[in-house]
Write a protein that binds this DNA or RNA. Structure first.
Lengths: 330, 330
DNA sequence: AACATAAAAGACAACGTTGTTAAAAATAAA
DNA sequence: TTTATTTTTAACAACGTTGTCTTTTATGTT
């Protein structure tokens, strides 16, 4: 490949002048700058990042380690958010998808550190606790959409309580009186916190908890969960007779819609439905479109990169709010 | 950070010996190797990739440019496939998500070339024609899930004709007599090719085309398409009276299921449904689960990286087959 | 015109590695 | 034991940049 020295001799200046032009150093006479620019163009010169990094102290690269689990569409927004902030600051993001057996987080972190990244975001597909390899202590690291035992790692997670409280208040204020909540697997933090949020809302509005029914629809250890959304929907409608149902995630709502339709109930009219996630394409695929609490994935990604970018060292454990996306389902 | 020289003086050898140990050079006495290894451990040495790249000819890095559109869950498999092959060969993949206005493919390619990547995969969310920036000609580049006018760029795309033919043959052979195909927007290549495939199947089995009805359910220019899946489903069932429907993509099937249920028709019993994509979570969310032609995203990603890895220069335009995932919908 | 000063360009070391070649040490052969 | 040969280590250049310092050139002042 063409080097700075070849450009220099082609332009008839010293190679240091070429370096100055490439780095937009203002102390170059415009006549020379012009000559150099033309030579760069003519020879097709491309700076060699590796070489420049040997002299610069900062690499300008940030790492993003993604739990392979990253299968759910909207989680990609975590990457987007981080990348957006990286672009705005002329930084680069190296995304590595990891996977327990094939390519471990340990290996990924090692690669990133060898590239001298300025910081690492470790992101998980769903909000849960993770165990990090020790090597991550060698580099500023922030957890996104997850947390770990070691308090020295800062983290940014969605505010599950706020989300549940917000959507429940919205339902109550819209006039719904009897609400059922088909929760996620109670083993996961999101389910536990959302339960609190729903109850908070009832208490804040002074509504008796007799008008609330909470029941999980996923059981079993993570990864091999069994769903019983349809059965629970049918049972709840028959027995508890709610006028609104909150679903723990958008796919549950899809199943609920089917069951309700088969029972002759019209969503949005005979019964209100709300949900969590804003799982791309699903909410608008339904009729009426699904009102759902959108996870702040993009915002978490952006927040995490911003944290690293600012060279912060404080061990924050931040929570970001969900956003209510109101559509026609209640 | 710790350098090779610091390790050397700690271990009491020359820095070249440390370099040899790091690179697994067998010509190091095991006693010395041991000493060096311990020093590396003790000092927490991490090789500096940038520095090593100044001397090595190959960077060991491949670039992956993803059309931002990458919003659909399964498309992530393109990246997974490429990454898998990269891992197996001890290479790295730099994934850059691009976006018409914010971060162009041009800019992404420039960055990758500055990192001296050995090759670039340019991947699109859906199978369509793309326009590539000229800079990509400076580096071995292959298109995945897309193609472009310039024949000098090799490409790997899904075999739409094969897919449509396969699923149609499967339906005919399962005894279905009247088949409706709710196609994608006819402006896109997938819709055009699948139409051919469906017709091929009818011809191969000698079934009259009177038993086939093809109609698109998306209209308008890409990006601002209007869907009329529900209307078309209802109309087709009333007028054409098919015993099986093929949906152009899984979300269309979701809508069809709703319409059919509302008409009192049971999928898998009264009417067969098949689809394209294997759009994660959707097929198994439905009841009965949806039989669908899975796009070979993972395989395309892997194939593309393999192509680059082998230093191939031939201008192939390869097609990879879909896989029929048979579930209960027909 | 002479001088002082500021602006621009150049020379050269340095970055942390690997490649090459020479030297030293270990081993085998005589 | 000496010599030849092989194995192992070391010395030093090289990679393509940027940082620092010096020199040259241009500009302004008297």
């Amino acid at each position: 490949m063409v080097t700075i020295k070849q450009v220099a001799s082609h332009a008839g200046v010293s190679f240091k002048t070429v370096s100055r032009v490439v780095n937009n150093d203002p102390t170059v006479k415009s006549a020379n700058r012009e000559k150099v620019l033309q030579s760069i163009q003519a020879l097709g010169y491309r700076p060699n990042r590796a070489a420049s990094l040997t002299r610069r102290k900062k690499s300008g690269i940030f790492g993003f380690i993604a739990d392979d689990l990253l299968k759910v569409p909207y989680t990609f927004d975590l990457i987007r958010g981080a990348q957006q902030v990286a672009w705005e600051n002329n930084k680069e993001l190296m995304v590595l998808n990891v996977n327990e057996d094939r390519y471990t987080a340990e290996k990924a972190a090692q690669n990133l550190i060898e590239h001298r990244v300025e910081g690492i975001i470790y992101a998980a597909m769903y909000h849960h606790e993770v165990v990090l390899p020790d090597i991550l202590q060698e580099c500023p690291t922030i957890l996104a959409n997850c947390f770990c035992k070691n308090p020295r790692f800062p983290s940014i997670v969605p505010d599950e309580i706020q989300a549940a409280e917000t959507v429940t208040l919205s339902l109550i204020d819209a006039g719904y009186k009897k609400i059922a909540f088909m929760n996620l697997n109670e083993l996961i933090i999101a389910a536990q916190d959302r339960k609190k949020g729903v109850i908070n809302a009832f208490n804040r509005r002074g509504v008796s908890l007799e008008n609330l029914h909470i029941e999980p629809v996923f059981y079993g250890p993570a990864g091999q969960e069994v769903s019983c959304s349809r059965e629970v929907t049918a049972k709840i409608v028959h027995e508890f007779k709610p006028d609104a149902i909150i679903c723990g995630q958008d796919p549950i709502a899809v199943e609920a819609y089917f069951v309700l339709q088969s029972m002759g109930l019209q969503v949005g009219k005979d019964i209100g439905i709300a949900s969590f996630d804003d799982w791309d394409t699903i909410p608008t695929l339904l009729q009426p479109a699904l009102s759902t609490m959108a996870l702040p994935h993009f915002e978490m990604g952006a927040w995490a990169l911003e944290y690293l970018l600012n060279g912060r060292e404080d061990k924050v454990h931040e929570k970001l709010p969900f956003t209510l996306v109101k559509r026609g389902s209640y």
